[in-house]
Design a protein around this nucleic acid. Structure first.
Length: 581
RNA sequence: GCGCCAGUAGCUCAGUUGGACAGAGCAGCGGCCUUCUAAGCCGUCGGUCGAGGGUUCGAAUCCUUCCUGGCGCGCCA
């Protein structure tokens, strides 16, 4: 039985990660403590005969959406109702009576159809603030990844022209996913795959050569499918400056020279633009090197040995239909030349051989048709489907004040990533790319991204950080120093708003884990907006620095906890946390 | 024709992996600057979660059929 259901695999967007069981994170630990308490109460109930099923199902603890439902809630009574043949509310009532005693809780109660709601004491929560100050930049770090090696391959744009806006979204997401995974304890390698072999670069070489001839005043016919962009002239000019005499060379040799020059030229360009975007790679992997080192041959031979291929009409085929693809795919053409698929298969096989346990590919959504064959390759080689995760990045619609910006691909005149960065700035650009989940299309409004107003979510969040810094400057002038002793400081926090902010801060590490394991950086964006919103609201209602010294110290401690988390989260997304705006 | 992604408030989108009365921003309307940055805050209006059926204590979320939009179905990359 080879057949796999790929619709399942694709929607299964999870890393194989152990359930979070980290040591000092308040949040998971709190859930675990609750779980044990409930477990104990159930055992007691069985022993006393109050409950009879003698089976304890998985105990789910969740954070209710509505804070009126407490800090945590469990549905255990409803889950057990059937086996117990009792109303959920009855079972819940029984458990509540048993749990009421614990000093952790301010309240334990039955609610709704049979939920048990738990509310912890404030002092329990305020310990989180001490933890934030103690850990600083490391607050939010965890070890769910346990050092497992993950490779994230992203951007990987052909070295034949400038990066466009779509590559930018891929870059922002690939980088953020990498940072998230590193943050939760994976050993992450960021890689750029350079398609420097094959027709695309030959075409680049020919385009450059013809433009060079034009520049020398020769009459030429430009290749019909050549690269039309203006930038080819720039490359040709640079090429002419460097090459003295080509006359002795054959046409093929000339093209070859142009390819080498052009690819290097464009790569320098890509590196520079990505650098300007704050994205760097641990490794640049050349497709051509796969051929130069005979790795394509070697890996194809392995596939043949495994009986995964066959020959038909002079070509070599991969039997991908055995693993859920709708047709078999050609690896080597009838003229003996390998397809792009061949090197891509070899590349992915080599990735595993290099020791990566999980591979993440970030692709443009227009390549989604390619997913089944790539998954098929893995299945054929005995890998689990989730060893390769393919993130589809949907299109970006570039707008200017609500109106679409025209992008004519044919003429080669499209809006480049560089232009957008130059216009709206790196921070806004990154933030916007990460605002939506990657598999939904993104409207990117240049005017909005530039706007310095509340409508612009980037500024909204950054402003919150700058405001705390401003308070710190004022505090310094007043001679008020951030308390060393967090316990004393938090004893001065009494407001509901302060407790609510603290609970939100406590949720940060869990949010990071969730975002990382699901490859969803946008969750961090939403978290940031929520935190900034609560802070702005608090700031407007209450003064931090008042006549009351102890009160000021407590509040200063709190808002600086907010500042630390804002900075950590922004940095995770590659966005700066300004001290002044 | 087949496949993938989406369909939630006027617009752009979230929705903690099946939980409690469906949320936010923008737009609209009405308020707040001699006090730590108004790049901010507060209030108000707004939804048959594309439609039907199913699964169960419980569905925007899972299954199924249909409708609409985007993308993809090369011995191109």
């Amino acid at each position: 039985m080879h057949c796999l259901d790929f619709t399942e695999d694709i929607t299964l967007r999870k890393l194989k990660a152990p359930v979070s069981q980290t040591k000092e994170e308040n949040w998971p630990i709190m859930k675990e403590r609750l779980r044990q308490l409930i477990h104990g109460a159930l055992e007691d109930a069985f022993r006393a005969g109050a409950l009879t099923s003698n089976e304890i199902p998985e105990i789910q603890i969740e954070v209710p959406a509505n804070s009126e439902h407490g800090d945590f809630a469990s549905n255990i009574a409803m889950v057990m109702a059937r086996a117990e043949k009792k109303a959920p509310v009855l079972i819940a009532g029984l458990l509540v009576e048993a749990l009421k005693g614990s000093e952790l809780f301010m309240r334990v109660e039955v609610a709704g159809p049979g939920f048990i709601n738990f509310t912890l004491t404030p002092s329990c929560w305020f310990e989180v603030l001490e933890q934030i100050h103690a850990q600083g930049p490391n607050y939010g770090t965890s070890n769910v990844g346990q050092g497992r090696r993950v490779q994230v391959e992203f951007v990987s744009a052909n070295p034949t022209g400038p990066l466009h806006i779509g590559h930018g979204r891929g870059a922002a997401i690939g980088d953020a996913v990498s940072q998230l995974l590193a943050k939760v304890g994976y050993d992450v390698c960021r890689e750029y795959y350079i398609n420097d072999a094959g027709n695309q670069v030959v075409l680049l070489g020919r385009s450059i050569l013809q433009r060079a001839r034009e520049l020398q005043g020769q009459q030429v016919d430009f290749p019909e499918d050549g690269y039309q962009g203006q930038y080819i002239y720039d490359i040709a000019k640079a090429f002419l400056n460097e090459q003295k005499d080509l006359t002795s060379l054959s046409e093929d040799e000339k093209i070859k020279l142009c390819i080498g020059f052009g690819v290097q030229y464009v790569l320098n360009w890509l590196t520079r633009d990505l650098e300007a975007f704050g994205v760097h790679f641990d490794n640049w992997y050349s497709e051509q090197s796969l051929y130069d080192n005979a790795l394509v041959e070697k890996e194809l031979a392995k596939l043949q040995d495994l009986g995964l291929t066959y020959e038909k009409e002079g070509a070599l085929w991969f039997r991908t239909t055995d693993y859920g693809d709708d047709k078999d795919r050609v690896l080597v053409r009838s003229d003996g030349s390998p397809t792009y698929f061949a090197s891509d298969v070899a590349y992915h096989m080599v990735k595993f051989e290099r020791g990566f346990e999980t591979l993440i590919d970030v692709w443009g959504a227009d390549h989604h048709g390619y997913v089944p064959r790539m998954k098929a390759v893995l299945a054929g080689l005995g890998h689990a489907p989730e060893d390769l995760e393919i993130l589809m990045i949907q299109m970006v619609n570039l707008l200017r004040a609500g109106k679409p910006v025209a992008m004519g691909k044919r003429s080669g005149e499209f809006v480049s990533l560089r232009e957008v960065i130059d216009e709206v700035g790196r921070d806004a650009c990154r933030f916007f790319f990460l605002m939506r989940r990657s598999d939904s299309q993104l409207d990117f409004d240049l005017e909005l991204a530039k706007q310095k107003s509340a409508e612009n979510p980037v500024y909204y969040v950054q402003y919150a950080h700058a405001r705390v810094c401003s308070i710190n400057r004022n505090a310094k002038e007043l001679g008020v120093h951030l308390p060393e002793n967090g316990k004393c400081a938090t004893e001065n926090l009494h407001l509901d708003e302060e407790l609510a902010i603290t609970k939100l801060l406590a949720r940060y590490p869990d949010t990071v884990v969730g975002a990382a394991l699901n490859y969803e950086p946008h969750r961090i964006v939403y978290y940031l907006q929520e935190l900034a919103s609560q802070f702005h609201s608090y700031y407007n209602r209450f003064r931090v620095l008042t006549d009351e010294v102890n009160e000021s110290l407590g509040r200063l401690y709190l808002v600086n906890s907010v500042r630390i988390v804002l900075e950590n989260a922004l940095n995770l997304l590659g966005v700066t946390a300004p001290e002044q705006m």
